[in-house]
Design a protein around this nucleic acid. Structure first.
Lengths: 207, 207
DNA sequence: CCGTGTGTTGACGTTGGAGTCAATCGGCGG
DNA sequence: CCGCCGATTGACTCCAACGTCAACACACGG
């Protein structure tokens, strides 16, 4: 299968990195399709078109695959949030960028988002500590962004911003779940309308 | 263990009904503690203080236990929603009753709510059809309640009530999750404040 | 007082699937 | 051309947990 191993470093061939990605992609699809718990390593291997044992060559176990998927992608969300915290733009624009990242990501790679939202976020008990911390960090970050705008008078003073962050995230998340479970029908035009409504209602609610 | 089997019907002694409840209670605690997937039947049996095999005397398998828990309690939610749909009271009062049912239930039996929210609602793939249907039905019911008030002019005409239902539920749910995962601290006083804020923001947002 | 039933027990057989590993492949450097 | 070493394979071992089942307990009716 491998071709030229060009002048990279010796330890990891370029090919090996590709293989790892291949397995991650396959795992994402399988997790989305059968769920994390009910799929077997062999499902991932055969979906990726590699031997059973190879999965263990690249990953400790199933859990580590899930963690890898989570870390890489949740990191994107966190860095957007950190970025937004530093920028001096209207609240609406911040909320729009946040909602866009999440909803657009779904449009691009629905299986990935399925795994992120359904399989990981709510596993609670088996959600390993680092995972939970990232989750919490996102919420806290959003909370402090909101608090900043509250000081500017854009948000009513009597509201708890920490709680508001949970409310907004929750609303976004269940709307997404509706799509994931095919409860809500939707095409691209609808998507923009949804984004708009979620943000409008939130902003009108806190103003 | 058994005492008098009084003049009940012959098939099921009163005692047997109690035993079944005992197992359900134990299962709820265990599910909440270790998660549905990672707990064993033997965990439930020993928590209930009964023999392993007895669990199979009362239930087909682990899945059926979960379904039993779900059905009984989600039914309560659905009947409240149906009730609210028929009553002629202000929107605020309806939302308050709904939020109260959910949040107060948590205050009474946190482990149960933990299982309902975390373990069941988001299992999606393995969520058996009847379960999913009940879930959807609740959302639809709330959606039509909102639509009714929209016709009365209490909700802006440009909003999609179906989507609003998802937004409200989602907000409530993630706030609850915050508590369940101990991300949000809370005592009884806070609880009322939270309920108020979630409803206030929603109503202000849709008005 | 025995016979029948449901209630209850825990050891046992089975199995799905995780994780191991010895063997083979294949590219690259020498 | 050779030998090394990472990449790759899939058969095999092992075990946890499921679900079964034969036997025992105990209450009641006859």
């Amino acid at each position: 299968m491998g071709r030229k191993t060009n002048g990279n470093n010796r330890k990891k061939s370029k090919n090996s990195v590709e293989k790892k990605k291949l397995i991650i992609r396959a795992a994402t699809e399988v997790f989305a399709g059968k769920g994390f718990h009910s799929c077997r390593i062999s499902d991932i291997a055969s979906r990726a078109g590699v031997a059973y044992g190879l999965v263990y060559h690249y990953f400790e176990n199933k859990e580590e695959i899930l963690n890898t998927i989570f870390d890489k992608n949740w990191g994107l969300l966190n860095s957007l949030l950190e970025d937004l915290a530093g920028r001096d733009i209207p609240l609406r624009q911040k909320m729009t960028e946040l909602a866009s990242l999440i909803l657009d990501a779904y449009r691009m790679v629905p299986e990935l988002i399925h795994v992120m939202v359904i399989e990981i976020a709510r596993s609670s008990r088996q959600l390993s500590r680092p995972r939970l911390d990232q989750y919490v960090r996102s919420l806290e970050q959003l909370g402090s962004i909101l608090a900043h705008h509250q000081r500017q008078g854009e948000i009513r003073a009597d509201l708890d911003c920490r709680l508001l962050a949970y409310q907004f995230f929750g609303a976004l998340e269940l709307v997404l779940t509706g799509y994931l479970l095919h409860m809500l029908p939707g095409n691209d035009r609808d998507f923009e309308a949804i984004k708009k409504q979620v943000i409008d209602v939130f902003l009108a609610g806190v103003a």
